[in-house]
C-alpha cells in the first residue's frame, strides 16, 4: 500500500487529470495483464488464510489481496506485486 499512500499525497500536490488517468491506468493494466480471475484471487486468498492461521489468529473477513505495483530495490521500474493486508487478531502462537 506504500504506492497508494504516495499517490494520496500526490493528489494534494495539484495533480492534473492526465496524471490521475496515467496512474490509474498503470495500476489497472498490471492487474489486467496478470490475468487473474476473481476465482483465482479467491483461491489465493483462502490459501493465505489457511497458511497464516496455522501460526496466528487472523481476521479472515478483513483480509484483502490485490495485484499492484511496487518499486523494487535497485530497480527504477515498478514491478508487479501481490499485496496482502492481513489483520491479526492475536499474535500469540496457537497451540
Amino acid at each position: 500500500m506504500k504506492e497508494g499512500y504516495k499517490n494520496l499525497f500526490d493528489i494534494f500536490k495539484k495533480k492534473t487529470s492526465s496524471d490521475v488517468a496515467k496512474d490509474r491506468l498503470k495500476l489497472l493494466l498490471v492487474s489486467d495483464r496478470a490475468n487473474c480471475t476473481p476465482e483465482l484471487m479467491e483461491m489465493i486468498k483462502n490459501d493465505i488464510i489457511n497458511v497464516i492461521s496455522k501460526y496466528m489468529d487472523i481476521d479472515a473477513d478483513g483480509l484483502e489481496i490485490q495485484i499492484t505495483q511496487t518499486e523494487f530495490e535497485g530497480n527504477d521500474e515498478a514491478v508487479p506485486a501481490l499485496y496482502a493486508n492481513i489483520p491479526i487478531k492475536d499474535i500469540k502462537h496457537k497451540e
Binding site: T16, S17, S18, D19, A21, K22, K26
Partner: peptide
C-alpha cells in the same frame, strides 16, 4: 488539452 494537463500526451500513451 494536453498542454493544460487534461489529456494524456502521445508520450504518456506510448509509455503505458
Amino acid at each position: 488539452m494536453v498542454k493544460r494537463g487534461d489529456m494524456m500526451s502521445i508520450a504518456d500513451v506510448v509509455d503505458i
